[in-house]
Simulated assay, not measured.
Amino acid sequence: MDQNPPRSTSVTVADVARRAGVSKATAARVLGGYGTVSDRVREAVTAAARALDYRPNELARSMTTGRSGTIGVVVGDIENPFFSLAVRGITDVARQAGFTVILINSGEDVTAEKAAIRTLLAKRVDGLIVSPAKESELDHLQEVARSGRPLALLDRGSEALAVDTVIADDRNAAEAVTRRLLALGHRRIAYITACDTSDHLFRTPTDINTGSVRRRIEGFLDICREAGLAEMERWVHVGASSPEHTRRIATDMLRASGRPTAIIASDSVIGLEVFKASCAIGLAIPSDLSLVSFHDADWTSVTSPPVTVVRQPVYRLGERAAQLLVERLNGEGMEARRVVLQTEIVERASVAEAPA
């Protein structure tokens, strides 16, 4: 009699047990990796599972072991090279530690983020890494932390959450960039971000819910004030949330009288659109417009001229967040850790003295 089950049905532990000539309980111990069996039995069960192409029922295994072997990750925009590289760092560490990553994109929408976390918890993920869309709305993350499920925050931290957090030194980076532009004579310096407000106008850094961006804007404004520049808030432009929006913001700004002589782009997606808009208008970089972008995306080094950037340790951000989470999952119960990674300004050819 053929011991192989029909191909149309899923192979079960009972099927493997019959093939190996052992009890279902013994087969379950081998396949689940718990309990004690002889080497001979383990080899027989393993061979049977391989012959039958047995695939474990992850839900059943999680109910037995208390672990699903998965980590949930929620980021703001997976099309943004920043998040793509950070997720690579997460997945590399997770794979080495024996975990699979389930990735969900929130689109920087807190409602979508809440739904994503509910979905991941329903899938019984062992831990979560989240880049919060809004630091002012953290109740759902507080609930995760209170539940005892390990949680790490990526790139965006909050003093209100006592969980492991990995961020870059954004404020100091923005301060250094602003000092550099001021030293070259720039006074009309614009800052463009995808973050937005209800009326699409910026008034104060507290308008910005994304901590990393808020810290950059605070650094930018503080250095401008130190230099005696007043009302620089009007040079902060929000709402560059898509290439189309960014092109419109940049084009309107660069066509206006009293246009900026320098622009700081809050990410490389914005930086690319500013670069294209300035070329379309006929402005030369850097003689007419100096440009600095956060994140050392691949395109920034191959344009003409190549673009000066703030190089963030993006892969390392994801890698370190995953390392902290895995340590938690392995039972290391120390107090919440806040890791701040240093940035680097990479000088290229897109910055020059302000035009007369």
Rank of each mutant, 00 (worst) to 15 (best):
K123Q: 13
R95V: 15
P243I: 11
V144W: 00
A174C: 07
L103N: 07
A284L: 15
V11M: 05
G69S: 07
F275H: 10
L184M: 09
A115S: 11
H245S: 15
S293I: 03
M1T: 11
V30H: 01
E226Y: 07
V93M: 07
V30R: 00
A356C: 12
H237K: 14
R234N: 15
K114V: 12
P306M: 07
Y34Q: 02
E159I: 07
I345A: 03
S212V: 10
V101K: 04
Y54M: 04
G271C: 06
L128D: 00
R203Q: 14
H140C: 09
V326D: 02
V11F: 03
D39H: 08
V144D: 01
A336Y: 00
D126N: 03
T26K: 03
S158Q: 10
R40D: 12
V41K: 04
L59N: 11
R149A: 13
R146L: 11
K114D: 14
G282V: 04
S257V: 13
R179D: 12
L85E: 14
T303M: 13
V236P: 11
N57K: 01
N105L: 10
P150I: 00
A48L: 02
S62L: 01
R88F: 02
A49M: 05
I78P: 01
A356F: 10
A112F: 07
K276D: 15
V30I: 03
G219M: 08
V22S: 00
L151A: 06
E353R: 12
A122D: 14
C195D: 14
L161I: 10
R187V: 12
A60P: 07
F275W: 12
P305I: 07
R118C: 10
E175Q: 13
S257G: 15
A97Y: 08
A265W: 05
N80E: 05
A20G: 02
F202L: 12
V125Y: 01
I263K: 03
G21D: 08
V163N: 01
V351P: 00
R225W: 08
S278C: 09
T193S: 15
G76R: 05
Q3H: 13
L52D: 03
V73T: 06
T70K: 07
A51L: 03
Y315F: 13
E226H: 09
D267Y: 02
D252N: 14
G318D: 03
I281N: 03
D222W: 07
V130Q: 02
L272Q: 14
I189Y: 03
I264Y: 06
D196N: 13
H140I: 10
L103F: 14
S198H: 07
I270E: 00
D139H: 11
L283C: 08
D15A: 04
M1Q: 10
N330F: 09
N105Q: 10
D2F: 13
V11T: 01
V30W: 01
G72D: 04
T70N: 12
H186C: 10
R234Y: 13
S290R: 04
T70R: 12
T70S: 15
G127L: 00
V346M: 09
S23F: 02
A115Q: 13
N4Y: 09
